[in-house]
C-alpha cells in the first residue's frame, strides 16, 4: 500500500503494438480527473505521457511506466531496455528523428516526441545508456 495521500500506478507498455500505444496515458488521464487534479495539469500529463508511450513503442521494444501522484504533483518514470539515446541534446531538438521510414508512413516519427515532453513538464531527467536502455523521469507540478 502506498503512503498516505499518494498513489502509485503501474503500466506495462507492450512492444510494437501501435493500437495499444496510448492506453496508459488514457487510463491515467481518466483517474486524474476522478482525483480532481486540475485540468491544466491533466493536459500536460496526457500530452507528455502519450509522447513518451509512443516513443517506447517506436524505438524501445516497450517497457513500463510508473506514476506517483500526490497533491503537490506527479512523477512519471518511463523505463525501457531499448537501444538508448546516442546524443540526448540532438534528440531533444524539434524535428530530429531516428524513426524508420515504415514508422513515419504511419504518421509517427516527426521528431517532436522529446521536445513535446520537455515542453509539457516542469522538470525532466533523461537517463540513457546506449545498448542498455533509457529511463525518463518527468515531474509535473499541480
Amino acid at each position: 500500500m502506498a503512503a498516505d495521500n499518494t498513489i502509485k500506478l503501474h503500466y506495462d507498455v507492450p512492444n510494437d503494438d501501435f493500437t495499444r500505444a496510448g492506453e496508459a496515458s488514457s487510463d491515467l488521464k481518466g483517474k486524474l480527473k476522478q482525483m480532481g487534479i486540475s485540468p491544466d495539469a491533466i493536459r500536460k500529463v496526457s500530452i507528455a505521457l502519450y509522447e513518451g508511450e509512443i516513443n517506447m513503442v517506436i524505438h524501445a521494444n516497450g517497457g513500463y511506466i510508473d506514476a506517483e501522484i500526490s497533491e503537490n504533483g506527479l512523477k512519471l518514470v518511463l523505463c525501457d531496455t531499448g537501444p538508448g539515446i546516442n546524443d540526448i541534446v540532438q534528440a531533444t531538438q524539434a524535428g530530429f528523428s531516428t524513426a524508420l521510414e515504415q514508422t513515419r508512413m504511419l504518421g509517427f516519427g516527426a521528431g517532436m516526441g522529446l521536445p513535446n515532453m520537455l515542453q509539457n513538464t516542469d522538470d525532466m531527467i533523461i537517463d540513457s545508456i546506449v545498448g542498455v536502455g533509457t529511463t525518463i523521469t518527468m515531474f509535473i507540478k499541480m
Partner: peptide
C-alpha cells in the same frame, strides 16, 4: 466544467479514495 466523476471533495481525498 462540472467535475461530476470526481471521487473526493479535494485532491487528497481523491487520491486516498482512488487508492
Amino acid at each position: 466544467y462540472e467535475p461530476v466523476f470526481r471521487i473526493g471533495n479535494n485532491v487528497i481525498e481523491g487520491i486516498n479514495n482512488l487508492n
